[in-house]
C-alpha cells in the first residue's frame, strides 16, 4: 500500500491539512456514503419504525377523529382471527412458491436452450425479455382482456368449449389464483432464465469438457456436473424471485382485485386495502410488519442454503 508514502509526498494542498492522509481518506469516503445512508434512514427506516409503532395502536383515520389508542397486540391477534387476513397469508405463500417453482423449471429449460453462444440466441434473449420490461399494470390488463369470456381470444374459446365455465377462469374461486400464478410465470420466467444463463456461461469449461470426454451422456453431465455447479446461481435466482413474488400487487389488483371471495387476496393487496382505502392504519401496519417478517425469515433460510451450496461447490 502506498497510502502512507502518498501522504508524505509534498503537495501544497496536503501540507495545509493537519489531518493524516489515511484519516482524510476515511473522512472523504464517509462524506460520500453519508448522504445515501442518511436518506435511506430518514425515508425508509424511519417510516418502518413508525409502522412498527402504529401497529400497536387502534388507529383509524376515519374513526374517532383519527385518535390513537394503545391496543397492545390486538392488531396482530386480529391477523390471526380475521378470515381474510388468514386467506391472504395462505394465498401469498401459495402464489410465491408455485410461481417461483414454475419460473425456475421453465427458466432452467430456456437457459439450457439459450446456452449456446451466438447471434441468434442473443437476439432471442433480447426479445424474450420484453415481458419483464412491460408495465405490470399493462400485463394484468392484457391477460384480463385475453381471458374475458365475451370477446377475449383465450376466454371466449375456453368458455365456449366448456373448459373454464361460463364466467371464465378469473371469476372462479378455484381457478383465479392458478391463472394469476401463470400470468406471473409469463412475466418473470425470462428473468429467471437470464440469471441462470449468466450462471451457465460462467461455469468452468474444462470441467464440462472433461465430463464430455469421459463419455458422460447429456443427462449425466447435467445432473452430475452442471446442476451442482450451478446451485449457487439457482439459489440467487430463487431468492430474488421469492422476495419479489411475495410482494405481488399490481397484476392481482388489475385482474381480480383480490376476488372472487378473497380467493386471490395477497398480503400486499389486503394491506393496501386496509391502510389506504379504509385508513385502518394500525391493522395495515401489522400486515406490513408480518410481510417483512416472512420475507426476513425466507431470506435467512435462503442465505443458509446458499452458504451450503457454496461450500459444496467449492469442495468439488
Amino acid at each position: 500500500m502506498t497510502i502512507t508514502s502518498a501522504g508524505s509526498i509534498a503537495s501544497p494542498r496536503r501540507q495545509s491539512s493537519s489531518l493524516r492522509f489515511s484519516d482524510r481518506r476515511k473522512l472523504f469516503l464517509l462524506c460520500l456514503a453519508l448522504p445515501a445512508i442518511v436518506y435511506v434512514v430518514l425515508v425508509a427506516v424511519w417510516p418502518l419504525a413508525q409502522g412498527i409503532w402504529y401497529s400497536f395502536f387502534d388507529y383509524n383515520l376515519l374513526r374517532g377523529g383519527g385518535r390513537r389508542t394503545f391496543a397492545g397486540f390486538d392488531n396482530y391477534v386480529a391477523l390471526w382471527t380475521d378470515a381474510t387476513a388468514r386467506r391472504a397469508v395462505v394465498n401469498t405463500f401459495i402464489f410465491t412458491f408455485a410461481a417461483v417453482a414454475l419460473e425456475f423449471l421453465v427458466g432452467l429449460g430456456l437457459a439450457l436452450l439459450l446456452w449456446r453462444d451466438g447471434r441468434f440466441n442473443r437476439i432471442c434473449l433480447a426479445f424474450l425479455l420484453i415481458p419483464v420490461t412491460i408495465t405490470p399494470i399493462v400485463v394484468g390488463l392484457i391477460f384480463r382482456a385475453l381471458l374475458a369470456v365475451d370477446y377475449g381470444f383465450l376466454g371466449y374459446f375456453l368458455a365456449e368449449w366448456g373448459i373454464s365455465g361460463p364466467r371464465g377462469f378469473l371469476a372462479n374461486t378455484s381457478t383465479a389464483l392458478p391463472v394469476i400464478i401463470l400470468i406471473d410465470v409469463w412475466e418473470w420466467t425470462p428473468l429467471v432464465a437470464l440469471i441462470l444463463l449468466a450462471g451457465l456461461k460462467s461455469l468452468p469449461t474444462d470441467i464440462l469438457e472433461a465430463a464430455a470426454a469421459d463419455g458422460a451422456t447429456a443427462w449425466q453431465r447435467f445432473r452430475m456436473v452442471v446442476l451442482p455447479l450451478l446451485l449457487p446461481t439457482v439459489f440467487l435466482a430463487l431468492v430474488l424471485r421469492v422476495m419479489d413474488a411475495f410482494r405481488v400487487f399490481d397484476i392481482i389488483f388489475v385482474t381480480t382485485g383480490g376476488g372472487p371471495a378473497d380467493a386471490t387476496t395477497s398480503l400486499m393487496l389486503y394491506g393496501v386495502k386496509q391502510g389506504l382505502e379504509f385508513f385502518n392504519i394500525g391493522f395495515a401496519s401489522a400486515i406490513g410488519n408480518l410481510a417483512i417478517l416472512c420475507i426476513a425469515l425466507m431470506c435467512a433460510v435462503f442465505t443458509l442454503l446458499i452458504r451450503r451450496a457454496d461450500v459444496r461447490a467449492n469442495e468439488r
Partner: peptide
C-alpha cells in the same frame, strides 16, 4: 454489513413504508 443493509432495504415490501410515508 452496510452494503447488505442497502440490499435489505430493497427487499422491504412497499406497503410497510408507504402508509407511514403517506401520513408523513
Amino acid at each position: 454489513a452496510v452494503a447488505y443493509f442497502f440490499l435489505a432495504i430493497r427487499t422491504v415490501p412497499i406497503i410497510a413504508t408507504l402508509i407511514p410515508f403517506y401520513l408523513m
